[in-house]
Design a protein around this nucleic acid. Structure first.
Length: 232
DNA sequence: CGTGTTTGACCCGCGC
DNA sequence: GCGCGGGTCAAACACG
């Protein structure tokens, strides 16, 4: 029997240094991403990073793994990894408002396509609606989320966060927490919630990109080289 | 006293 | 236009 479950996400990432098919640019799965030592986590923590564009393109009933596999051929090679990682357990669907998952880059792309007179609206949206979305999204930062099976809600990703709100969703008894990076002139936000269908799953959504390195507190316990690899 | 959390109020986009 | 719900604000509070 192996040792007690290690409360850490420092394992094989599904996506690492891989260009996302959106305008989000590159990102890396932080190697120092850990849960508090006291936490009792599922013995095989599984992080699923899902870019907004992929989620938006998928039907709401499509699970995350299918979304990733169906939306981009570049993810095809990961199929075996994902399947084995799941251990035969089906992933639950990630219910999201389609509009909420529109990245500003995608909206701009659609608008420029419209202007160029290529005809059909993207996803059947009218230009008025697209402008509405753009107006609402112009302040939106790039976002992505990942899903983790864990008993603890907030993972330690190396940054310092300040909680600024909490809401209880309509169809779930589990509250959704809102966090902001405490660093000055860093507007990155984080949203943490539990999946209604499966409270064991934690959905963490990041919005924006950090304009600084992770908290220096980590440097005392982590190898400096690892600190070069963080979100965006 | 400084920092972080809680929580009710408020704002605003969206669907009807 | 109206109601709902997600997201944010900010005062009060807790804690070291």
């Amino acid at each position: 029997m192996a040792a007690a479950p290690q409360a850490t996400l420092n394992q094989q990432p599904l996506f690492e240094d891989q260009e996302m098919p959106t305008q989000m640019g590159f990102f890396s799965f932080p190697p120092h991403l850990t849960y508090p030592q006291s936490a009792s986590c599922h013995q095989s923590l599984k992080g699923f990073i899902i870019p907004p564009s992929l989620a938006a393109d998928a039907p709401s009933t499509t699970n995350i793994a299918e979304t990733l596999l169906l939306s981009s051929a570049t993810h095809k090679q990961r199929e075996g990894t994902i399947a084995s990682d799941l251990g035969g357990h089906p992933l639950l669907s990630l219910q999201r408002s389609r509009a909420n998952l529109w990245a500003w880059g995608e909206v701009n792309e659609c608008l420029s396509r419209k202007r160029s007179g290529s005809g059909e609206d993207h996803l059947g949206l009218s230009s008025i609606k697209m402008k509405k979305i753009k107006a609402r999204r112009k302040v939106r930062e790039p976002r992505f989320c990942f899903k983790t099976m864990s008993d603890v809600d907030v993972l330690d990703d190396g940054y310092k966060w300040r909680k600024y709100g909490q809401k209880v969703g309509k169809n779930t008894q589990h509250p959704r927490s809102y966090y902001r990076c405490t660093q000055d002139n860093c507007r990155v936000k984080k949203r943490v919630e539990r999946l209604a269908e499966d409270p064991r799953m934690v959905i963490t959504t990041y919005e924006g990109r950090h304009a600084h390195s992770p908290s220096l507190d980590l440097e005392e316990s982590q190898a400096p080289s690892q600190l070069n690899n963080f979100f965006f």
